[in-house]
Design a protein around this nucleic acid. Sequence first.
DNA 1: TTGAAAGCGCTAACAG
DNA 2: CTGTTAGCGCTTTCAA
Lengths: 316, 316
Amino acid sequence: MTVSRALSGSPHVKEETRKLVKLRAAELGYVKNAAATAIRGDGVGIVGLLLPTLVNEFYARFADTLATRLESAGLQLIIHLTADKLEQERRSLLKLREVQAAAVVMVPTPGSGTGKNGHTGEMRVIQLIRTEKSYPRSYMALVDDRQAIVKAVRRLAESGHRRIGYLGGATLLSSGSERLSAFISGLQEAGVDPQPKLIHTGIPSFAMGYEGASDMVKRDGATALICAGFEVYNGALNGLLEKDLRLPTEVAFVGYGDPSYYRWLEGGISTIKIPVERLASETARLIQTGTKGQDRDVRKRSVRAEFVKRRSCGSL
Amino acid sequence: MTVSRALSGSPHVKEETRKLVKLRAAELGYVKNAAATAIRGDGVGIVGLLLPTLVNEFYARFADTLATRLESAGLQLIIHLTADKLEQERRSLLKLREVQAAAVVMVPTPGSGTGKNGHTGEMRVIQLIRTEKSYPRSYMALVDDRQAIVKAVRRLAESGHRRIGYLGGATLLSSGSERLSAFISGLQEAGVDPQPKLIHTGIPSFAMGYEGASDMVKRDGATALICAGFEVYNGALNGLLEKDLRLPTEVAFVGYGDPSYYRWLEGGISTIKIPVERLASETARLIQTGTKGQDRDVRKRSVRAEFVKRRSCGSL
DNA sequence: TTGAAAGCGCTAACAG
DNA sequence: CTGTTAGCGCTTTCAA
């Protein structure tokens, strides 16, 4: 007990004893056994992060920032990649529950709402970007991109575009339907009629962006394209560039997120820029917030996206 | 005990009992307490990953692949960012030891060799890319980039470059000194004299690449540049592009790693391409390998880098 | 096929 | 200020 007390900084230990204990502990390279602490219910300080992928500058930056923030609070981050697969997500949640993670930050997989996919036990759930109703007492870290999207659409319309394509996440995703609605609002404000053929949504993926983008331009005659989704924008851009479609002369393009290379590509890719670091900081805050102020507003935080105009959204 | 046996698939349980137990467990949303298992010394199935940063396509892809590989072995990945800081690294190793991680995959921080920074306890250590002698019984997952670097230098020389700059990691890093030696060999094979002014090494960082690159071109008259280090290439490229130096007409450029946007930038950035996925797979293998075949060779695996010629290394 | 005991490392609660 | 006891959830060993 004296040893335990000395090491954990209890005041009820003779100063000299403490010194001796610490010294010897260091000599032996002793480290506290987290499992033993955990088994008593003292918490291990583990936070889970469930992402579709890390191969995406937005997610990577988010994970990086979050890990750094958490580390200063003595928390460790376990990363699970779900590839937006329900089964994966289920397994990951299970694993995290086993190690008694204090919280999970997750980009919920589409459809995660149906069935008891998300048995999250004691863990605090923080839904990232998208939300699914199936996590009732969860926290939320969201992006408010409505105004940025509207602005992007209007900008395209102002430079003369009338056939503006939209590539985004499935509307069964909260984020997907909100972004699409913003897009349509934008069109309406600009007095352009929405055209069903120029709206592609689906489970977001590289492939979807890759095929969708060039199809919309070549087959459906889009002269401008807006991407709304992290997984999609990479695919779309690759699709366009590979088909040698020059920006903005052959297609105007607005991406999503702001990967560092956007500045240099084709003289600058316009984009809906998301303040990742801020989002990660807010998330860290949600994780650490006490269980006191559980008002609805405190549980939900959102950061505002911004439209960044670069060369790729120039006029026809 | 019967419950425990039923759940863990022991054959010594009546089939009916097992069914009942499993059913009820599912109803209750029971999950095994990993801490309790761990405290008995059965291992928790956690692997640590220490990286300088995740905001770098190479590291992100590595982490992604590794996490995916490990997941199929029932292992979870804890990520720690060290920012190449010794103190960070020490803290991370400690944390991982506390949770009884089975292994750590780490890009050792420069200087980690001196002092008892790396108290790794029972964990299996896998050094990634760089090596430090201070981890004596460690495993190694390395990149063999010598030939690729030599090839790159020769290619530049063949297109007429005589003032070829080198930007790379400090030579106190194993990787740094090996890459530099490859660079010099390349020059010699091509009959070009190495010039001290055109060789910049240091603790790899974005800033170093950023400043080093344009300095070497504008101040020291380099007509071509080779980057050898993940942290450096991004900085270097940004430095050049920001100063409006066009590739390859004003400077020929060879990067390191092969981020997806290299294909599209400036008509294509030449690079030393590292097979990340393969490296991650080898690493996963090193983690899971039995403690039997501990011959020196089995502990050390390396993948071969490849020189990818694109527009940016064209002639003057 | 099932159960009882014991112990993994730690600390809260209660002596001394 | 230091020590003893007990119990967290699990599985190994031994017994029924």
